[in-house]
């Protein structure tokens, strides 16, 4: 269970907060934790190794004949790249670009071994397709999605585990 973990932290108490005075809030609540080892909050079918993400709009497991309630679980925070691409043009709203002018984002689909599922996410800034290949080991971090005057809105992103890959390309 991850319900007890800290999902919120303000800029003053988090050493990685880059925006003095701004409150760090998740861009959408309840989908990931914000701590030193962040992870996605998934749903697990009771008694089975079937997982869903996000939990709040999960699908169903057709092997379950009876109604059930998903358990809240922390999904693995590392995995291997299933595929990767970029968005060279700014996506339309509700996406909010964090830079002006827009800098192309890299998107990775990462396969979690234990859960046997693939999860999409942006890669951290500086990672390009040249840094990735199918099978690259990735870890989950929490990073800025965008900011306004009051808040820094956070999201999960994928970052290569191999430090040599960071900022390459």
């Amino acid at each position: 269970m991850v319900g007890a973990l800290n999902r919120y932290s303000d800029g003053a108490s988090d050493s990685r907060g880059g925006c003095v005075g701004k409150t760090r809030v998740p861009a959408v609540e309840g989908m990931f934790t914000i701590d030193d080892e962040p992870h996605l909050i998934g749903g697990k079918v009771p008694g089975r190794d079937t997982y869903f993400f996000p939990k709040h709009v999960a699908g169903g497991d057709p092997a379950m004949g009876e109604p059930y309630e998903l358990e809240e679980v922390a999904l693995s925070r590392t995995g291997r790249v299933w595929s990767y691409t970029t968005s060279d043009y700014p996506p339309p709203p509700p996406f909010v670009a964090n830079t002006d002018p827009y800098v192309p984002i890299t998107v990775a689909a990462v396969e979690l071994e234990k859960e046997q599922m693939v999860v999409l996410g942006q890669c951290v800034a500086g990672i390009t397709p040249n840094d990735l290949t199918i099978g690259t080991e990735m870890e989950l971090v929490v990073d800025t999605l965008y900011e306004d005057d009051d808040n820094e809105y956070l999201v999960w992103k994928w970052k290569p585990l191999d430090p040599d890959a960071e900022g390459g390309g």
Partner: peptide, 13 residues
């Protein structure tokens, strides 16, 4: 992974 999902089903079970 396919439109519009951000995660696939799980083949864990």
């Amino acid at each position: 992974i396919d439109l519009p999902y951000i995660a696939t089903d799980s083949a864990g079970a």
